[in-house]
Design a protein around this nucleic acid. Sequence first.
DNA 1: TTTAAATAAACGAACGCTCACTTATATTTG
DNA 2: CAAATATAAGTGAGCGTTCGTTTATTTAAA
Lengths: 196, 196
Amino acid sequence: MRPRDEYKEQQIRQKGIEMIVKEGLDGFGINKLAKAAGVSPATIYIYYKDKEELITRLCIDVADKMMGFSLQNFSPQMDFAEGLKVQWDNRLNYFLQHPLDMEFIEIMRYTNFYEKVSQMLTNNFGAILGQFMRNAEEKGQLVPLPFEVYWSVAYAPLYQLIKFHMQGNSYINSSFTLDDKLMDKTLKLVLKALKP
Amino acid sequence: MRPRDEYKEQQIRQKGIEMIVKEGLDGFGINKLAKAAGVSPATIYIYYKDKEELITRLCIDVADKMMGFSLQNFSPQMDFAEGLKVQWDNRLNYFLQHPLDMEFIEIMRYTNFYEKVSQMLTNNFGAILGQFMRNAEEKGQLVPLPFEVYWSVAYAPLYQLIKFHMQGNSYINSSFTLDDKLMDKTLKLVLKALKP
DNA sequence: TTTAAATAAACGAACGCTCACTTATATTTG
DNA sequence: CAAATATAAGTGAGCGTTCGTTTATTTAAA
């Protein structure tokens, strides 16, 4: 029996993500993807049941990879300031190393696909970060807060900075680049808000 | 000469926003929209050159309305804590009164349309909020910061809370509702971070 | 030879958009 | 004051194209 050409599946996934990032979900199509990946449309249907499953699997795999990456060198037992810094660094580094992946997820987060995706993902990620928050509270390193309030203050500013960086400008500056110094400055503010 | 039926144009816009919010940009189509709005497809082309212009104009008008709303009862001369509270309240109230509008903009923000839209919008909004930041700095009510860092800390947490509210859950809670109390709690943290 | 991988070609459905035409109002005419 | 005319609003049907998906066939390794 003829073996699968791994390169072909990889190309389908790679070009799929590229296409959605560059042209949006509405600019994405199976026939177009097949041409870009150098395969027949029918080949795509060997790997994926339909268009929806293809997109959903792309989401799941990328999100999974990102979450795994963000837990590198991290443990819920870490002191609050140290643990949050690791989280921020991991997220930034993932973005710097895989900008397409992060843009892809940011796009998909606001589509109907993401609902299904977040259900399919293991709750491992939320559990670990929830534990980290509770530990920090018990150690007196973090003011007691509802999880959503905590999350909004702890992570949303970072993602907003990344968003500014991706679009290359903000409301008043016509060009903007994110660097370590800006990130540290922002993280310091966040820590000031969250520490007792 | 026959007068325009204002109701028809209004329906086109209203149903257009609804359709994109419910089915996403890829689920949006002119023929479908015409059916939903109770008009002929050709009628849509009386008001809009093509699909792209229709979507762009929807974005511009909604974004414009939102920005105007967020400046209600606000002046760049306000004290920092007071001015930021007005901004937060205005944004939350706009969301509560026009949830579809805000969902619509949040979706469109991550599409290729938004780039064109943000160019077409008056810079008035950024100018006023930039002035507010500088005034607050001079009064010693706000730590000196690059605009993007300030913005990320000052507003991103609110939008993250609204996002949690829209999707009805977060990473660890299966149900979540945003209320005034949670918002005040979050705003207090943000002020703590930004005040000298 | 057997088997799954891969394809070229083509399917019906849906797409954005246009055309020939009708409808409704404002204006002009007798 | 009708009746005729002018004009923009609005329409249903259908154009060509692209969509997601399938079928019939070939290819390549076990």
